[in-house]
């Protein structure tokens, strides 16, 4: 026995590539088709095995420097070592920020606090260093939310969105422009999304979206809080997450 969908739609469903209507249709099909539900179970087992087997090979230490030194033309940090090197790196990042601002910045320049958005991207990048992503690791919003008690002077809204393929992974405290903020971490396929939350200030709203150093950010305000989501997922995925969080 076979089912034509077991070789086609099933994979798009598994990979989150069906649109909402297609996904709902296939869900319904799964209720009645034992072939497809068994096949889906097998695919999910295989995926879990691949996921949990640490098969990703990160670039060895030293390769980046070797590549940087082999690139022709002006060098960002040639011959600069030790502490000064960081000064140069920061300067390079600032130049890059200015350039990407020029290239990718939204047209409505006054609608958000640019420095805060860039600080949010930097905070997300810092969090990707080993051991920095999560202070509290839990997919349960009722565990993550109380964890912030006493650590902030506000209670951030926390929602698990696993049903929408944005599983909550946990949270951490972070610092943006010297202010302590809540950072909620969501997953999207293999990627991490940091959602920074703080109380809205009347003088600087967070609104808009853009790109910095290859990372997308999008910001919005709701119920007296301001939010900024940062990730290397696509702008469309980030917009989906924003819409879901706006609905809650």
């Amino acid at each position: 026995m076979s089912c034509e969908f077991a070789h086609t739609s099933l994979h798009a469903y598994l990979d989150g590539e069906l649109d909402a209507a297609g996904s709902a249709d296939f869900n319904q099909h799964l209720q009645t088709c034992s072939i497809c539900s068994a096949a889906l179970g097998k695919e999910e087992t295989l995926r879990r095995a691949l996921e949990e087997s640490r098969l990703y090979s990160r670039a060895p230490a030293g390769l980046k420097l070797r590549i940087q030194e082999s690139l022709p033309g002006p060098s960002a940090d040639k011959g600069v070592r030790g502490r000064w090197r960081w000064v140069v790196v920061v300067a390079a990042a600032l130049i890059a920020a200015t350039l990407s601002w020029r290239q990718f910045g939204p047209t409505d320049r006054q609608s958000y606090d640019r420095a805060a958005m860039f600080a949010a991207v930097d905070a997300h990048l810092r969090s990707l260093q080993p051991g920095h992503l999560l202070d509290v690791q839990s997919t349960d919003q009722h565990t993550v939310k109380p964890w912030f008690d006493g650590k902030l002077d506000f209670a951030p809204p926390v929602h698990d969105l696993a049903a929408n393929d944005f599983p909550l992974l946990g949270g951490r405290l972070d610092i943006i422009e010297g202010r302590t903020v809540a950072a909620l971490v969501y997953g999207r396929r293999k990627h991490f999304i940091s959602v920074f939350v703080e109380k809205s200030a009347p003088d600087a709203s967070w609104n808009g979206s853009g790109q910095r150093q290859g990372y997308q950010w999008t910001a919005w305000n709701k119920d007296g809080f301001r939010f900024c989501a940062v990730s290397d997922v696509s702008a469309a995925d980030l917009e989906d997450l924003k819409q879901l969080l706006m609905q809650h």
């Binding site: 670039a59 890059a96 350039l99 150093q213």
Partner: peptide
Amino acid sequence: RSRFEAIVMPHLDAAY
């Protein structure tokens, strides 16, 4: 050069 290091270099792990 700086833009390259900011936009492309972060994907070194993916490349490797």
